[in-house]
Design a protein around this nucleic acid. Structure first.
Lengths: 213, 213
DNA sequence: TAGATTGTTAATCGATTAACAATC
DNA sequence: TAGATTGTTAATCGATTAACAATC
């Protein structure tokens, strides 16, 4: 067994991209793919692709390439999405509701198995295929759900509190859509999606409007 | 004028975080802040913060720190969000609608000034404060809006086509929520938000479930 | 065999951070 | 002045990519 180092985060992010490509290729019943093909499709350097995979093993054959089905399965196993991962959602507002209806989430590798809110007007209402639950039941409900990943789509002011409740419910992996930095134990992994930050980076790259009216 | 290099993308992303912190400090009427304070609040290394700013000028005073109002204005200028930037949205589905209602987008530095869709059932409908327009009028409408940034929230299959129409309408900066890699001219800047990718990275970090229940 | 393509090494490139002279 | 904190340099760290022997 070769000693393989820890994979950097950018590698993991690209793995998800490769997985999407392979999902597509599988659907089209492609048999093999080379690292050059991947570069062609994704813009990710072929050597990068091979190096990314090398953190986890050897999946290709020199002169041939990679078996589509084989690599698909390998990446699914690496990302732990061989079976759809159950996910909790807290915050059944516009954004939470949109995420639940998001086709790529509904179909693929993740399944939102419970939705919570603290708004009495929402609790008990139907949202897609789920009934919105009182966030007070988070811990109790997750004893049966046993989800390990959660999505936070509550307003910024409520996010820290919700995050702590999630940790109490056994969640150690959080996708945070609220525009705040969560302070949580070091073993909790948080990834943040910040639309305003994304727009700000785009805005920076706008041409200077010195000249002109 | 000191020669300052191009700021790396991570620097720009952090600039947006600093701006959020300063917005908060300004509201609380704080007068000055030190790089150590920023580290305390954001987890971003104090030297990193100073280095990030150094790409754009000198904004602090040794022994004192940074004036909150001054730095807020400086970053707003750097990110070109002194006035709210107009933004186009294409795809008035669940996600697009949620983004339009997103508090941080409604209030702050960006303003969605037009929403488009190609669904005849939606065109003409009211969505928040806007009337949904036929995507066919994109080019024409943007002659008056003059937005330079657009958000794509259409299904994956439609995204490439929409992106090309946006480019034809003069847009050079795109925030893409569709899970596809857009192929566009090199001068068009695309940032992609991929929920499934984010979840995949979290899923990877789950503890191995070798040992059974 | 000749051609193609892998996995890995080594070189390059870029980003982060510690350290400190300058200075308020 | 003494203490605090900046801006910048230089060292460190980490990620990307070119090159190539191995091999199908």
């Amino acid at each position: 067994m070769p000693h393989r180092g820890r994979a950097p985060t950018p590698t993991l992010e690209r793995l998800a991209i490769y997985f999407a490509v392979l999902t597509d290729l599988k659907r089209r019943q492609a048999v093999t793919i080379s690292s050059a093909d991947v570069e062609e499709r994704t813009g990710i350097n072929a050597a990068q692709f091979r190096k990314d995979l090398s953190y986890f093993g050897e999946f290709g054959r020199p002169g041939i390439g990679y078996g589509v089905d084989e690599l698909y399965s390998a990446i699914a196993r690496i990302l732990k999405i061989e079976q759809a991962q159950p996910v909790l959602l807290v915050g059944a507002g516009n954004l939470g509701s949109a995420l639940m209806g998001y086709p790529a989430l509904r179909a693929d590798s993740f399944r939102i198995v419970a939705a919570f809110d603290n708004n009495p007007g929402k609790i008990g209402e139907q949202l897609w295929d789920l009934t919105i639950r009182d966030v007070a039941y988070l811990i109790e409900d997750n004893k049966t759900c046993r989800a390990k990943i959660a999505i936070i789509t509550v307003p910024a002011a409520a996010a820290q509190d919700v995050a702590e409740q999630l940790v109490d419910a056994g969640i150690r992996n959080i996708l945070n859509f609220a525009p705040v930095a969560l302070k949580l134990p070091a073993d909790v992994i948080v990834r943040r999606v910040d639309f305003v930050q994304e727009l700000a980076v785009l805005s920076f790259h706008l041409p200077d409007s010195n000249s002109g009216r």
